[in-house]
């Protein structure tokens, strides 16, 4: 890995300043970034650790729902979000493995927007708001395809605010090697309708399955989607699953998530 200058600010303001340097890049939990740097696929000149910023840590209820600091590790979300938003807590508790969950953060996950990451599905299905060092971005505007988000150069996520649905569940089918989501479906039922977000499956990254949303908004039961089909056209096809297989998983897992929702 190339060498770099390591800085660890303790406030958002200092982090903004540090990230304005030439070649600077934010570091959150590092569980994806470090392996990428080892492969020399990322080579920042300055690495700005966000894990020392206390105002970006923690889980609490507040305006608009559940606020999760961007630097909050998955393990903390799994524990502290459980009474407020159990489906989200369960998702966090199923990412990677325990050691990864102790370091990896929600901000890092959604900033990277890996097409097989779990969190983007929760953010999108919940209609969450992504708060950054500069602005507030609606989930529907935030995710812009594989590894692509609305974040600008030097901008970083500071918090995510989740409206809390009446019922929700996330069901993930593991890629057998990496244990990322081969496909994962987050279903969230709100008073005004149902949102269904799918990760792992599409060449365009996390997406909403709107046909299922319509069907489930009318009838929130696994049977409601029985007649739907998922087109395989835009699905990822790789060693671990063909496009048709992933399309099948989208439907199977959506049904299971609806059944599991509470």
């Amino acid at each position: 890995m190339h060498n770099f200058e390591f800085v660890k600010p303790s406030t958002i303001a200092d982090a903004i300043k540090a990230l304005s340097a030439e070649g600077a890049q934010p570091l959150s939990g590092g569980q994806t970034l470090l392996p990428t740097m080892k492969q020399r696929l990322a080579a920042p000149d300055v690495l700005v650790s966000l894990t020392g910023i206390s105002e970006m840590q923690g889980v609490c209820m507040g305006d608009g729902g559940l606020h999760i600091g961007a630097a909050t590790p998955h393990a903390v979300v799994a524990r502290d979000a459980a009474r407020h938003y159990p489906a989200l807590a369960a998702l966090a508790g199923g990412i990677g493995d325990p050691a990864v969950r102790n370091r990896g953060t929600i901000g890092g996950s959604i900033a990277n927007n890996d097409p097989a990451a779990c969190y983007p599905s929760a953010v999108l299905a919940s209609g969450a708001t992504v708060v950054t060092s500069q602005r507030r971005i609606a989930a529907d505007d935030y995710f812009q395809g594989m590894f692509t988000t609305a974040l600008e150069e030097g901008e970083f996520v500071t918090e995510v605010v989740f409206p809390i649905p009446e019922r929700a569940a996330y069901v993930k089918f593991n890629q057998p090697a990496s244990r990322f989501a081969l496909t994962g479906v987050f279903v969230a039922k709100f008073a005004d309708g149902v949102r269904v977000a799918v990760t792992g499956a599409s060449n365009n990254g996390v997406f909403r399955w709107t046909e299922a949303e319509d069907a489930l908004s009318a009838d929130f039961s696994a049977g409601a989607i029985a007649g739907l089909t998922v087109a395989a056209d835009d699905m990822i096809s790789d060693l671990h699953g063909s496009a048709a297989y992933r399309a099948n998983l989208v439907k199977v897992l959506t049904g299971r998530a609806v059944t599991a929702a509470r």
């Binding site: 590092g30 569980q31 470090l34 650790s49 990864v100 102790n102 370091r103």
Partner: peptide, 16 residues
């Protein structure tokens, strides 16, 4: 263990 929590020490910078 870092501060009591299991972490993968190959995926953490010493300075962090």
């Amino acid at each position: 263990h870092v501060d009591g929590k299991a972490v993968k020490s190959c995926t953490v910078f010493a300075m962090d």
